[in-house]
Nucleic acid binder design. Structure first.
Lengths: 346, 346
DNA sequence: CTGTTAGCGCGTTCAA
DNA sequence: TTGAACGCGCTAACAG
């Protein structure tokens, strides 16, 4: 038993298909009120639900907006997703979701699927990678996006342009001042800290991570500090944990105080957890800062110093929302880097 | 400039539309290999992307699965969303997302929108409410779902059936043993605790909250403990925080030890944060347990006692995934209820 | 095995 | 103002 159609409604109301269409779905020309009422009544009785597929086919605009994330359960992405969702609601569209774990080839597949569904626009939220093993994938992704844009699609990318994507019409990137903010963070941290700095970063070639590393190093340099050592690991909590385990010994065996910059909050949490499991306490034995200011992590103790990013706004912007201010962030120094409190219990 | 169509591909390849269709999109009957190759080549040159809308229209199956959550940025929902997403991928479908803040009327709108898009199935993840102000909304939602099911749609609801929904074909609810698990939690907590119990719950009529309250009380009763006082507040972190502020005085002014059960983890975190801001320490001055075992909160200290729920599996089940085991959970007693450690620093 | 044709449900031109 | 007819891009019967 299929849903009732417009022509059934028209038949019941005793009018033509065209008239029914004009009444029920928006049209510039309004039929007479009495006949309109009849149509509405018929539609209601039949429980008519317009077929969006058919509508989309007829007017080639689907009312869909595609969102590509690495992992929807990652709080960074779900915050962005909320923004995209909100923008979509304002635009009377619906959000199509795709998770790809960050593999460019999967992203290409997702773009193709969105294109197949004739999504009006596509948002790509995951960090770009320029690692050599992703080279081919990026190329294919760029080609797919290019085609999509040429066919009238709109693309919003968070952070960095797709490697190799022509700056086509309808393609825009939401700039996130990762480097500047990381530099500011470094500058503010050098104030109260006189030991070594160390960076726990994601794999080289992950642009967001690279930007933050570069910015932090620049900030250190500008404050007259030596370059920080960089540890490469996974761009997630597990990566942070591994790095933390590796660092624990070193911290315990050294008298110089270490200040760790993890390039995102979940990594910082991972580092902290590992250190704690080895008996190293923050901020007593070392200090640490993250990046993103993930909402769910704000009650974490010791409170994590970090850089607040307006993730929801970023999502809105990427989804093409006009009345959202450009991205800016602020450094949030909290207890995890508060050397003065080193002797108090956490 | 629109995307190229199947008939263009057919023309370039010098074959009929039907043949092109058979080659490019799955069909039981396979054309000859040489002709197939020609078609594929033509499609590739033209950058052909099948129009999923048209396909859906023709075979009346959209390959879409609709997901309704209160808030995608809430870790509880994003975990379920990951499961749904995963199931969708296995089924070769895409996920359509809708956020509704839990208002039944919004949920009804979302269901209608999904029905309009001819989603193959719909997952409703948010807790059901039977509050009187939601009565009408629930009724309309039930009617909308009913119609959707009658038209061949599948519906998966997490936790509780929609109030007033006929047990139609294609309608199934993923049972979550909230009550039993809460009872078990209570039983395990009574072991090491000799003070009062108190429950921080969501608004009355929110079924998930009500179940957990009822189960916990039952567990207490079965262990010979008196009924716990219940504080009603918002079903989120802010609600927990408010409750925590209200409780701080009482805890400080009483010599009897208080064990708090917050009906979900984020509320527990809120309570803990508020208590801490008032100088009340967990587990030194009081103990607390939550529910859900949210992944992002596992590194929280003191580690939160809670009930682990397989949220991802719940999502998979609701999305109709066959090879996922039924929902079960376990009590996780951690430091937040560890009275023995009351004197050590958190 | 291939090609022709008729819908899928709707928007939108044209006449009336 | 209303209605008849065509086309959106594709699948699935049928005919060849």
């Amino acid at each position: 038993m299929a849903a009732s159609t417009l022509s059934e409604v028209a038949r019941v109301a005793g009018v033509s298909l065209a008239t029914a269409s004009r009444v029920l779905n928006g049209s510039s020309r309004k039929p007479a009120e009495d006949i309109a009422e009849r149509v509405r009544k018929a539609a209601d009785e039949l429980g008519y639900v317009p077929n969006a597929q058919a509508q989309a086919l007829a007017k080639s605009s689907s009312g869909l907006i595609g969102l590509i994330v690495h992992d929807i359960a990652d709080p960074y992405f779900s915050a962005i997703a909320r923004g995209v969702q909100d923008a979509a609601r304002r635009q009377n569209r619906m959000v199509l979701l795709a998770s790809t774990s960050g593999a460019p080839l999967d992203e290409k597949e997702a773009v193709a699927a969105f294109a197949a569904r004739r999504a009006d626009s596509i948002v790509i939220a995951g960090s770009r990678s320029v690692r050599s093993e992703d080279r081919q994938g990026n190329g294919e992704l760029a080609a797919e996006l290019d085609r999509y844009c040429r066919n009238g699609g709109h693309v919003g990318v968070v952070g960095h342009p797709i490697e190799g994507a022509a700056t086509a019409e309808g393609y825009h990137v939401v700039e996130v001042p990762n480097e500047e903010l990381a530099a500011t963070l470094a500058a503010e941290l050098t104030g109260g800290h006189d030991g070594d700095f160390l960076i726990v970063a994601g794999p080289e070639g992950l642009l967001t991570s690279d930007d933050r590393v570069r910015g932090f190093q620049r900030g250190l340099a500008e404050s007259g500090c030596p370059e920080a050592e960089v540890i490469r690991t996974g761009f997630n909590r597990a990566g942070g944990y591994d790095a933390g385990l590796a660092l624990a010994h070193r911290i315990k065996g050294s008298k110089r105080r270490l200040c760790i910059f993890a390039v995102n909050d979940v990594m910082a949490i991972g580092v902290t957890a590992a250190l704690r499991s080895e008996g190293v306490w923050i901020p007593r034995d070392a200090t640490i800062a993250g990046f993103d200011d993930i909402e769910t992590l704000r009650d974490f103790r010791p409170a994590l110093s970090t850089v607040r990013l307006p993730l929801e706004d970023i999502g809105r912007l990427a989804a093409g929302d006009e009345n959202t201010a450009p991205v800016s962030g602020d450094v949030k120094l909290r207890r995890s880097t508060d050397v003065a409190s080193e002797n108090q219990p956490a």
